[in-house]
Design a protein around this nucleic acid. Structure first.
Lengths: 344, 344
DNA sequence: ATGAAAGCGCTAACAC
DNA sequence: GTGTTAGCGCTTTCAT
C-alpha cells in the first residue's frame, strides 16, 4: 500500500559513481577527467565529459578537502565591513586569493569585546579554512596579548607592535608625520588633530606621530580631539575648532572626519584653505571631489590585503618556517586644494 | 641509515581518534561530546573535553560537510567590492548569514564579459557552498538569459525583469521618480540626468523612470548623460551642464556622480542650490556631510542583502518548492540642503 | 551510557 | 589507459 517510491524526485547531487556508471567506466577515471589528468584516452574522456554534463555533475569539494586536507580557502576575521579601508583591504585579499585559486570566507565579528572575538574563534574552528587574515581595526588596545587559536596560520593587519604574530600594515606614523609636516611647512604655527577612537591602534599611532612631529618642530602639542571615524564626529569637532579663531590647520585621522570638519567650517563661514587648512587620511575615491578637494594621506589598502594573503599562503605552505615578521607599507601625501598658507 | 623518523615534527591536526585514544573512549563518544549531545556521562564528557583541549582538537569541517551534505556556507558572486552599495549589501548578507550560523564565501569576478562569469561558475562548482547570492551590478544587459548553473540554489540581486530566478532589489524606478518629482515640485521646469553606465540594469531603470516622470509632467525628456558611477564622470558631466545657464536641476544616478557634479558647479561659481539643485542616489554615509549636504534617494542595501539571504536559505531548505519571485524594496527621499527652488 | 561498523565522495597507490 | 583497493574524519545506525 505504499505510494510508488520510485516517483520521488531525485534530490541528491550526482556523484562520481553515478557518472562512472553512466559512462561505463570506473569512478577513478571520472576523477582523472575531472582533474584534467592526461592519462585518459580521448574517446573515454569525451564519453565521461558527456555523462558529467548530462547528469549535471559538480565535484564535491567537501570530499576533495577531506582527501587533501586543504580547503583552498582562507578566512577573514573583521569587525566591520562598513569602513572604506576594510572594504579596500578585503578587495585586495579577494584579488590575491583568487589569483592563488583560493576562496575567501568572511568571519565577521559584530561586537567589539574580546568575548565576541572568542566567539569568532569558535566559528573559525568550524570554518573550513586553511588560515586566517585578521583585520583588527584595533578596538582591543589594552589586551596585552591577543590569543590566536593555536594551529591556525594567521596574519594580522594592524599597527600594534606586539610580536606574537605576523603583521602587515600601512606605516601610520609616516603618514601622520607627512600630514603634519606638510601643514607646518606651509607656515602654520600649530596643527590640531581630530583623532580616531582612543581604543584603535592605528588612531593611537597617528596621534603619537603627530605629537612627536610637532615636538620635533619645537611646538608643544595639544591634546587630540577623539572622534569615532564618522563624518558626524568630524563635524562636531570641526564646529569646536572652527569657532576658535587661532585654529588654522586641522589634521583629521581619516577622510570622513576631515569631510565632517570641512562641513562645519563651511557652516561657520571659515574659508578653506584661506582661513583653515584641512588634511585627511586614507584618500578615499571621493576625496578628490570634496569641496575643496582634500589634501590627504593615501594608504594602499589593496596592497595591504594582497600582501597579507601572500604571507598567509606562504605560512600555510610551510608551517614549520613560522617567522613572525612585521611589514609596513609606505604612505603617500596627496596634496590638493584643502591646504594652503595660514591667513596674513 | 635513516634519520630517526620519530623526531619528525607532528604536522597533522589531531583527529577524533587521537582524542578518543587520549581519553580512553571510542571516537563516537568524542563525536557526541563535540556535538553537545546529552547521552554522555558527565565524567566521561569531562575527560574527553580535557583531551580535546590538551591536543588542541578542532573538528574537521570537511568531514562534517561530507557526512551531512551541507556546508553551512553561502557563496556571493560579485563583480566588484569597490562600490558603496555592494559593500553594504555584502554587509547585510554577512549579517544575516551569521545569524543563521552560516559562513559566507566570496566568489569575485573581475572581468565583466560573460566568459568570465562562466569562469565564476567553474570556481563556484568547486566552491563549498550550499547556494549563491549573485550581485549583478548589471553589466550584462543584452544577454537575454543568464544561465545559472543547474542545481545551485541562487538568488539574484538586480533589477532586471527576467523571470528565470529569484530576484531581490531596491525599487529603482520609485527612487528615480521621487528624485525627479522632488525637483519638479520645487518649481524646476526641467531636470537633467547624469546616468550610470548604459549597460547597467539599475542605471537603465533610473533613466526610464526619470523620463516617464518628466513625460507625466508634460515635459519632453532630454537625453541622459551617461557616466560610469565615478566622481570623475560626475565632474565631467557637471562641467558640461554647469556651463549651460538654463540648467537648474540635476539628478545624478548615484552620490559619487552627484559629488563630482557639485565640485564642477563650485568651480564654475554656480551656487548650490541657489543656482542649481542636485539630487543623488544611495545616501552613502558621507552624503550628509557633502557641501552642501546632499539631497538623495536612500536605498537600504543592508536590507537587500539580508532579504536575499533569507530567501536563499529558504530555497536551500526546500529545493522542491522552488518559486522564482521578485521582491522590491522601497526607497526613501532624503531632503537636505542641495536642493531648492530655481533662481528668480 | 558506550561502542562497532558502515559509508559519505573523492583520490593516491598500486595493479594490470 | 584503465581498474581495484583503501582510507581521509566524521556521524548514523544498530548493538550492547
Amino acid at each position: 500500500m505504499t505510494m510508488s517510491e520510485e516517483s520521488a524526485p531525485r534530490r541528491t547531487r550526482p556523484s562520481m559513481v553515478d557518472v562512472a556508471r553512466a559512462a561505463g567506466v570506473a569512478p577513478v577515471t571520472v576523477s582523472r577527467v575531472s582533474n584534467g589528468q592526461s592519462n585518459v584516452d580521448p574517446v573515454t574522456r569525451q564519453r565521461v565529459v558527456e555523462s558529467m554534463r548530462a547528469l549535471g555533475y559538480r565535484p564535491n569539494s567537501a570530499a576533495r578537502a577531506l582527501k587533501s586536507g586543504r580547503f583552498n580557502t582562507i578566512g577573514v576575521i573583521m569587525f566591520t565591513l562598513e569602513t572604506f579601508g576594510n572594504m579596500r583591504t578585503l578587495g585586495g585579499i579577494a584579488q590575491e586569493a583568487a589569483h592563488a585559486n583560493c576562496a575567501v570566507t568572511l568571519i565577521p565579528v559584530s561586537d567589539r569585546t574580546l568575548g565576541r572575538v572568542a566567539g569568532a574563534y569558535d566559528r573559525l574552528s568550524e570554518a573550513a579554512v586553511d588560515g586566517v587574515v585578521i583585520i583588527f581595526e584595533a578596538h582591543l588596545l589594552g589586551e596585552a596579548e591577543f590569543p590566536l587559536p593555536p594551529g591556525v596560520p594567521a596574519v594580522v593587519i594592524d599597527s600594534n607592535t606586539g610580536s606574537g604574530y605576523t603583521v602587515v600594515d600601512t606605516d601610520q606614523a609616516q603618514g601622520a608625520r607627512q600630514a603634519t609636516e606638510h601643514l607646518l611647512s606651509l607656515g602654520h604655527e600649530r596643527v590640531w588633530h581630530i583623532a580616531g577612537p582612543a581604543a584603535s591602534f592605528s588612531a593611537t599611532h597617528r596621534v603619537d606621530a603627530w605629537q612627536s612631529t610637532l615636538r620635533a618642530a619645537g611646538i608643544t602639542p595639544l591634546a587630540p580631539l577623539y572622534g569615532d571615524w564618522t563624518t558626524e564626529s568630524g563635524y562636531r569637532h570641526g564646529l569646536t575648532l572652527g569657532r576658535q579663531k587661532n585654529v588654522t590647520a586641522i589634521f583629521a585621522a581619516n577622510d570622513q572626519m576631515a569631510l565632517g570638519a570641512m562641513r562645519a567650517l563651511h557652516e561657520l563661514g571659515r574659508r578653506i584653505p584661506a582661513d583653515v587648512s584641512v588634511v585627511g587620511f586614507d584618500d578615499m575615491e571621493e576625496a578628490q571631489s570634496f569641496w575643496p578637494p582634500l589634501t590627504t594621506v593615501r594608504q594602499d589598502f589593496t596592497a595591504v590585503g594582497r600582501l597579507s594573503v601572500q604571507k598567509l599562503l606562504r605560512k600555510i605552505a610551510r608551517p614549520e618556517r613560522d617567522t613572525n615578521d612585521k611589514t609596513t607599507l609606505p604612505t603617500e601625501l596627496i596634496i590638493r586644494a584643502s591646504t594652503g598658507a595660514p591667513p596674513n
